[in-house]
Write a protein that binds this DNA or RNA. Structure first.
Length: 1081
RNA sequence: GGGCGGUUAGCUCAGCUGGUUAGAGCACACGCCUGAUAAGCGUGAGGUCGGUGGUUCGAGUCCACUACCGCCCA
């Protein structure tokens, strides 16, 4: 016992758990309430476990522990995410590979072998970290996404989607590092933005007058402008990427925006955004006259001649320029409408080259225009006089060409941010590549509807970040041009005429005509598998799967679920199916907020598409952990706080407690060691203090804790603590039922505070020298029960300290008790005495006020005061104060306490409106009522209310009647007392110290002195002593009067005025002097 | 550029459906207590509740706009 050393204690508890197999026992214990399903969101083990993992894993541990104690069975299957970019990048660095351009078969084999090797390079750290945190998860049976079984299940899922016709191939604009033609992720380009100068060109796209939309004609006529008079009419298009102009297929305007038809002295007639007129005047330094105004929407389908009209024929996309579709619409080169067009920069008319922009591609789908590939995927120009040049180097020549063609209105430059690939130094090329999609957008409504069934913590994510994301759902691009991932199980005929999705290894074996059971399903081995069907050779597509699909597939793949086309388990996998059924869907998952579009989405999408059910019912979405200054923790900034040192210094419980209490789970948390230290002192320290207090005396008194006195026979304060404990059980249970970890933790914190600073503080004497056996036993029983309850209630939060308490408090008393607190039954709240709880609440309020009054009086608490007056707003509470009168009086060291009622002569009252009640009823009259009440004599009102039950007021010639519940009476401090009042509670001290009281105070001072000496001598609390003393002045008087009490308090068998012998102590001040000699009896 | 969240005491955070004098912990100052004791407790000071405008008898709380910070997306 003694001072707590939590890290050491935790080591002992870990040892105990391991030795006794407590986790395993919790897994096997009876589960009368059935299953509680938890899904582990898999981390990648090649990184180091960090503080944000502590956050997530603390929450992931909390609810399974709670549910286990409640009698549920929780399968705590771990999981590891092993594929994907973080691993690839780490390996690239290690191998010194630059990009992944066209690796040979052997290179892929080496690369993937290295990935596999390094995925688990930090697994030891993870294992240790997980155990040390007290996160109970089964890592031995953890699912691993790179295993053949996992991959096969993923294939099986893809096949099911394929069979429903939900997988298609289409273009997708991706960021490429040109020259090596490697697709990059957003993360890879995020750091590559640089401030650069780029061209900013305004190009005339001459409009074809014969195709002018009717709406435009009408609008112009109305403004007195004749189309035929408009020489050289062109729409003015702006771009910062001239090299994309040969690939232009549309000019986009915003349908809502106003466009101006202007006369330009230098260029004839131009159409562009009204908003841009002034800007262009300045830019081009010419006077522009606005002739008419058009709406963007008017201009749809208006055709124009692009700056490089020959390109579309050259590329073989159309046979001739200006070609039309069957419905008469132009194939391309017309004005399109798009909401994303703005006029903040440029002309308000956007040039659309769908190959080179995501929004452009989206628009081209809407309008059904073809793609013009002006460059190849290495960024080399394929068209115009610039053919063969790197795209960025083509700008100059193209600008010159356009000037020659007379379509360049203005060529300038702009400084803006553009991304570069930091390893090759090349500018990023956004480029449309063929890509595989899951058609999730067909399920927009279902995705949204299934989300309705999910309980989100915090709530705002549901309709905010996640709901909005679902509402605007776009198809899920699932292919990646990478190596280390689940290979897409799509095999395509060499002529592209037919595609097959393979749903199992067995199926692939059948197609290939040989047994492939031992095949490593990764690249490059799977790429070797080809087969002939209908006389055509089928080869696998080169891409691998988006890793988010891997993780979203875990509800199925973690059990190696394999279904046939009828949804029945494949032969030999029936048991897997069983396990899957038992664990679908999850009751609870928990990850950080960045998973809304990651794991949360992939889980939700797959479950909705295949089962039309949500994958999880409750989710806690955690905020990020930042450093003390609110900065993101990152290695480069050097502000990363390591978990293990914190565990070693404060203990895992302290860190966990911090995570639960620091702020709302969804909020960003500013982490600092200081706050962990605070968590340790504040909660764990106080709890430990109470616990060691109990143990210290229980070891001396050996109370019978097995047969405890019935609660109703115990003193009032014990019955209070009992009720308070039941209240705590209820509060913590209710909070955890709502997945409100913080609410539960706060309830515990408040309770422990009250337990320590009120119950123990008030009852210390009952433990240390109490000859009244019944009273003593009651005190021990009550405190013991409270501590046991706390041990159980905090077990899910702080499993180590809870276990230590349980072992010493419960197991030492009853060897038949559950072996571990985590195997014990979660407590049920018993009936509680509400009026007792209210009474004590009132008492605590009054004590608080009285302490403040005491402090103001300047009379030390050691010196008793004769009288204290108290009151509370309601009769029930006043009765409660009477109940605890002696407790209150003792706490404040006053001789007498009187509870005053509203009829008391000595008090006056302030009358206040009960606003929540009155406001609703009287509305605008409230200020007048308030005014009037302030002027009333409170005492009179108090008496009136008591007598007549109602108060009549005259307001603006109208009589209104106020009932007692519409009014509040606040006691005012009586004159001549040191008093404080607050919201109807009042405490007043009579500050009158007579000689007798003063001497009594001095006697207390002497008792304290002797006690200190006892301690300095190193005596046991039960040791008896003999006291000799010599005293002068007031101290001599005090000893004469209160000597016997001194003896009693200090366990002195004798007290004699004699020469000092033994251990000496004493003091001297203006009241006199005194010396004591102590010797052990 | 869009979406979501945050902004309350020096710091970290509470503040339920609008209601009387906006709270806690830490830190600070002062004091108290002393058989839980290299602990504990209390009191005090400290706040234009980011800003502006609005709704209302009444706004930290609701609405609009706005500034700054963070996250996600483009």
């Amino acid at each position: 016992m003694g001072e707590p050393n939590f890290p050491r204690l935790e080591a002992e508890v870990l040892e105990f758990w391991k030795k006794q197999g407590i986790f395993e026992k919790s897994d096997r214990k009876p589960a009368p309430r059935g299953k509680f399903v938890f899904y582990e969101g898999p981390p990648t083990a090649n990184g180091q476990p960090a503080m944000h993992h502590v956050l997530a894993r603390s929450f992931k541990d909390l609810f399974p522990r709670y549910k286990t104690m409640q009698g549920f069975h929780v399968t705590r299957k771990g999981g590891w995410d092993t594929h994907g970019l973080p691993v690839e990048i780490a390996v690239e660095k290690r191998l010194g590979v630059l990009g992944r351009k066209a690796l040979s078969r052997e290179e892929i084999a080496e690369f993937n072998a290295t990935c596999k090797k390094y995925v688990f390079e930090n697994i030891q750290d993870w294992n240790y970290f997980t155990e040390r945190l007290g996160f109970w998860v089964d890592l031995d049976s953890a699912y691993i996404t790179y295993t053949n079984e996992y991959i096969e299940s993923v294939w099986n899922l893809l096949k099911r989607l394929w069979d429903k016709g939900l997988i298609t191939q289409d273009y997708k604009v991706v960021p490429l590092s040109p020259r090596i033609s490697t697709t990059l992720s957003q993360n890879e380009i995020a750091d590559g933005y640089r401030e650069v100068d780029d061209p900013s060109v305004y190009v005339r796209f001459p409009l074809k007058l014969e195709t002018t939309p009717k709406a435009v004609r009408q609008r112009l006529n109305a403004q007195g402008v004749r189309l035929e008079d408009l020489e050289n009419l062109a729409i003015l298009v702006w771009t910062t990427t001239p090299w994309t102009l040969p690939s232009n297929t549309m000019a986009a305007v915003n349908p809502q925006m106003d466009y101006a038809l202007v006369r330009s002295p230098s260029a004839g007639h131009l159409i562009f955004a009204m908003e841009a007129v002034e800007r262009l005047k300045e830019l081009h330094e010419e006077e522009l006259e606005v002739l008419a105004q058009l709406k963007g929407a008017d201009m749809e389908w208006w055709e124009y001649t692009p700056p490089f009209p020959e390109v579309c024929v050259e590329l073989g996309v159309v046979k001739e320029q200006g070609e039309r579709r069957e419905n008469g619409r132009p194939v391309m080169h017309f004005v399109a409408l798009a909401d994303f067009v703005s006029a903040e920069d440029g002309s308000g008319v956007a040039h659309e080259a769908p190959v080179y922009g995501a929004e452009d591609l989206e628009l081209s789908r809407k309008y059904g225009t073809p793609l013009l590939f002006g460059t190849d995927e290495y960024g080399v120009m394929r068209v115009t006089g610039e053919r063969g040049k790197f795209f960025k180097d083509a700008d100059k020549g193209l600008i010159r060409a356009m000037k020659e063609r007379g379509v360049m209105y203005h060529a300038g430059t702009i400084r803006h941010r553009y991304p570069f690939h930091d390893r090759t130094g090349d500018p990023i090329l956004y480029f449309a590549k063929p890509s595989w999609y899951i058609k999730t957008s067909l399920f927009r409504e279902q995705l949204y509807a299934r989300n309705e069934e999910i309980n989100w913590v915090p709530e705002h994510i549901k309709y905010g970040r996640f709901g909005n994301w679902l509402k605007d759902n776009v198809d899920w691009a699932i292919s990646r041009e990478r190596y280390w991932g689940t290979p897409l199980p799509f095999w395509v005929a060499e002529d592209g005429s037919e595609k097959v999705c393979v749903g199992s290894v067995r199926e692939l074996s059948e197609l290939a005509g040989r047994d492939l059971s031992d095949l490593d399903l990764h690249r490059p081995y799977v790429d070797d598998i080809t087969f002939v069907k209908d006389g055509k050779i089928f080869r696998r597509v080169p891409e691998v799967l988006d890793v988010w699909f891997d993780s979203g597939a875990m509800p199925y793949a973690q059990w190696h679920l394999m279904l046939d086309e009828n949804g029945r388990p494949l032969p030999g996998t029936e048991a897997n199916y069983e396990l899957f059924e038992q664990h679908f869907n999850a009751d609870f998952i928990c990850e950080a907020i960045d998973q809304t579009r990651g794991w949360f989405y992939s889980l939700h999408a797959i479950a909705t598409l295949l089962y039309d059910r949500p994958a999880f019912k409750n989710v806690i979405c955690l905020g990020h952990l930042v450093d003390e200054k609110g900065q993101k923790m990152s290695k480069s900034k050097g502000n990363v706080v390591e978990p293990l040192p914190a565990f070693d210094k404060y203990g895992a419980d302290a860190v966990r407690w911090y995570m639960f209490t620091a702020s709302e789970p969804g909020d960003t948390k500013r982490f600092s060691e200081r706050l962990v230290a605070e968590a340790m002192r504040g909660f764990l320290g106080t709890l430990w203090n109470v616990y060691s207090f109990f143990v210290l005396y229980a070891n001396l008194d050996r109370p019978n804790l097995k047969e405890r006195p019935p609660v109703e026979e115990r003193p009032e304060i014990d019955r209070w603590l009992y009720s308070r404990t039941q209240q705590l059980v209820q509060e913590v249970s209710e909070a955890l039922e709502r997945y409100d970890a913080r609410g539960g933790a706060r309830a515990l914190e408040e309770f422990v505070e009250e337990l320590s600073n009120w119950y123990v503080r008030r009852n210390r004497r009952r433990f240390w020298k109490n000859d009244d056996a019944a009273d003593r036993e009651a005190a021990y029983a009550t405190l013991w029960e409270a501590l046991v309850a706390v041990s159980q209630l905090c077990a899910p939060f702080t499993p180590f300290v809870a276990e230590a308490l349980w072992q010493n408090l419960v197991r030492s008393v009853d060897e038949n008790a559950p072996e571990s607190v985590h195997l014990s039954q979660w407590p049920q709240a018993q009936a509680m005495d509400q009026s007792l709880l209210k009474s004590m609440h009132a008492a605590l309020e009054v004590v608080r006020l009285a302490r403040a009054a005491r402090a103001r009086s300047g009379v030390k608490t050691r010196i008793p005061l004769p009288l204290m007056l108290v009151t509370a707003p309601t009769a029930e509470e006043r009765a409660g104060l009477q109940h605890f009168a002696s407790e209150i009086a003792d706490e404040l060291n006053v001789k007498e306490l009187r509870v005053l009622g509203p009829e008391e002569e000595v008090l006056s009252y302030r009358v206040l409106p009960n606003l929540p009640v009155l406001g609703k009823k009287y509305g605008k009259k409230v200020p007048a009522i308030r005014q009037l009440l302030a002027e009333l004599d409170g005492k009179y009102v108090a008496q009136t209310l008591k007598a007549k039950q109602a108060l009549h007021l005259e307001i603006e010639g109208e009589t209104i009647t106020l009932t007692p519940d519409e009014l509040l009476l606040e006691a005012l401090s009586p004159a001549g007392y040191e008093a404080l009042e607050e919201r109807g509670y009042m405490a007043a001290l009579e500050v009158r110290v007579d000689d007798e009281l003063f001497l009594e105070g001095l006697a207390r001072e002497l008792i304290r002195l002797v006690q200190q000496a006892r301690k300095d001598m190193g005596l046991q609390v039960s040791d008896r002593i003999h006291l000799s003393y010599q005293a002068e002045g007031k101290y001599a008087e005090a000893l004469r009067k209160f000597g016997s009490r001194l003896q009693e308090e200090t366990l002195a068998l004798s007290l004699s005025e004699a020469p000092i012998t033994g251990f000496e102590t004493g003091l001297e001040d203006e009241e006199g002097r005194v010396r004591f000699g102590l010797s052990k009896a």
